[in-house]
């Protein structure tokens, strides 16, 4: 991916993050600098405690760096107020968490449309509900539209999370271990869906994973260890081409 042209969609400059715990100060990230462009699928790889989730949270403005800068489309966002960040996140980001199950009292379609309980969609033509149904169908859940989460498998639950992430037309999707706890077929389905979305819709997607088979299907792999940036590797995804 060519990152040299124009302003990157998201840029981190010399980001540090430390946590003050009862046991003392813990450094989670140290001097991390990177940039991500629209349409890129980036995998953050590293062992447990390497700082993947912390980095993902800082990219998604869910957490603030202790030092350093976070810029989105050239605008610094790490100093924004919590209230501004709420509006900002609604417009730009969608999140997929490993543990975030759909709301149990809502069906698949209602879970997909959940964000619009909290804000109105901007610049949208057409019916939101129809679009939700289309997204659900495109993720292979056409037969589950009105099913409750208790009736879904683990793979289907993760697809509902993807549908919910897509409904807001985000510029960036951040997914923390989205394929953990899934069988191989579902893992591949999820990563291939991400790849397709990044290419077709130009969405920047950042995932954290332990799984190298999944990481190798990304455009870039960023290797982390003990909070330190080890390597930013551009990947030629052979199975993807096949």
């Amino acid at each position: 991916m060519d990152t040299s042209k124009g302003t990157p969609f998201l840029e981190l400059k010399d980001v540090n993050k430390t946590f003050n715990l009862a046991s003392g100060e813990v450094t989670a990230l140290e001097h991390v600098s990177l940039s991500i462009n629209k349409g890129e699928l980036v995998a953050l790889v590293g062992p447990s405690g390497s700082g993947k989730t912390t980095l993902l949270n800082i990219i998604g403005s869910l957490d603030r760096p202790t030092r350093g800068e976070v810029l989105l489309e050239g605008i610094r966002i790490d100093g924004l107020s919590e209230e501004d960040l709420v509006h900002f996140r609604r417009e730009k980001f969608s999140f997929i968490f490993q543990d975030a199950k759909p709301l149990r009292m809502l069906n698949v379609l209602e879970n997909t449309l959940l964000p619009f309980n909290f804000f109105k969609p901007k610049n949208r033509n057409g019916n939101i509900k129809d679009e939700g149904i289309e997204i659900i169908k495109s993720l292979g859940l056409g037969h589950r539209i009105y099913h409750m989460p208790s009736q879904l498998s683990g793979g289907e639950i993760q697809r509902v999370a993807i549908a919910r992430a897509l409904i807001t037309h985000p510029a960036m999707i951040l997914a923390d271990e989205p394929t953990a706890n899934l069988d191989r077929a579902n893992r591949l389905f999820v990563i291939d869906t991400f790849r397709k979305l990044s290419k077709e819709k130009g969405i920047a997607i950042v995932i954290s994973t332990h799984d190298l088979e999944i990481a190798n299907r990304a455009d870039r792999i960023i290797h982390l260890k003990d909070g330190v940036f080890l390597k930013d590797e551009v990947v030629a995804c052979t199975p993807c081409a096949a």
Partner: peptide, 12 residues
Amino acid sequence: KEIGLLKSVGAS
């Protein structure tokens, strides 16, 4: 976690 989810999808 539900609270976290609601916040992550835009709940103030």
